Amino acid sequence: MFQFSEGRNSALGRYLLFQLSFLFFLTPLHSQKLSPKTVTPNPEELILITEVSSGKSKTEKVYGASEFLKREYSPASTFKTYLVLSLLENNIIDPKEKIESADKHIPNSPRLLDLRDALFYSSNDYFEKVFPKLGKEKLDLTLRKIGYLENSKSNSKLADWWIDLAGLKHGGRIRLTPKSVHSSWSKIFENGYGLNKDLMEEWKKALFWSKCQEREANVYGKTGSWEGSFWFQGALIRSENDYVIYTILNRSKSGSRTGTITRFYRLAGCKVPSLE
């Protein structure tokens, strides 16, 4: 502890203490933890969080409706994340090419969308148009390679998941536990798939959502809405050794896509981007 005598030294002491206090309140964002200090789950909500901090081991936390952990749900449009991987892996699309897409849930539709736009707005029309060039066989090879269905109890045979082209938007008959959905998402940012570096960079570009100036980080994400489930998978990435991965599952009757997106951004401490 600092000790100072009366008079001039006392004034110097007050000045130094003021400077120390000032520096404390101006701690750079890059030295602050990315994970939320507290998480209070909403009713009918499950939140899974994986955090990696520089120089520290990985931590995993679960908040909310623990009964959801024992059940399997449709991954909904989070499935498109892995459809996109297969499209990129097989050089089916140019990520920058814009395709006219008409979806009722997308503002100002019909509109031209590139790959990143198609994921951001979760366009069904876009992926139905490009999928025939890929086909189920190549998609299945990608799903096998990354072990997407390994932890699914209700999908013993990969071939059984397919329904039709319209079912592509939610993964057909696929049903997965929230932990399995979260694990597949986390591996993207943990380099857990062992994929080519250039392929991973293109994949992440397609999953980019916004800059988070408040946390000096990038946000990546994917929504999903199907069968009463509202998903948001988010990643707040500061560096390859400093990030937080989120999976939010809301099964409230009052749940919504926009509400789940907003929920993630509030947890992450970032400004919600324009959804228009």
Rank of each mutant, 00 (worst) to 15 (best):
G147W: 08
I99L: 07
K157I: 15
L141I: 06
E137L: 10
I93T: 12
S53R: 08
K179G: 11
A65Q: 15
Y148P: 04
A159E: 15
N124E: 08
S122H: 05
R144V: 04
L139N: 01
V130R: 12
K145C: 08
G55V: 03
D140R: 15
K187L: 15
R111M: 08
I92K: 02
K80V: 01
W161V: 05
F68M: 12
D103Y: 05
R173H: 12
L149H: 07
W161L: 07
K80S: 00
E72I: 08
N91D: 14
I163K: 13
S180E: 08
T59S: 15
I106C: 01
P75N: 04
N90Q: 11
F131V: 00
F131A: 01
P178W: 07
K70Y: 13
N155P: 06
K104I: 14
R173M: 09
L165Q: 05
S109Q: 05
L143C: 11
K157Y: 15
K61C: 10
L119I: 13
S184Q: 15
S77A: 08
I47V: 15
D103P: 03
F189R: 03
S86I: 09
A76P: 04
S57R: 12
V62Q: 13
V52L: 12
D114K: 08
N90K: 10
L88C: 09
V130I: 15
P110D: 08
D94T: 14
S53E: 09
K58Y: 07
K98M: 15
F127D: 01
D125E: 07
K61G: 11
Y121I: 01
E72S: 13
L87Q: 10
I47W: 10
E128L: 12
I106D: 00
F131I: 02
E89H: 10
S101C: 05
A166F: 06
E97G: 07
K153Y: 13
S122L: 03
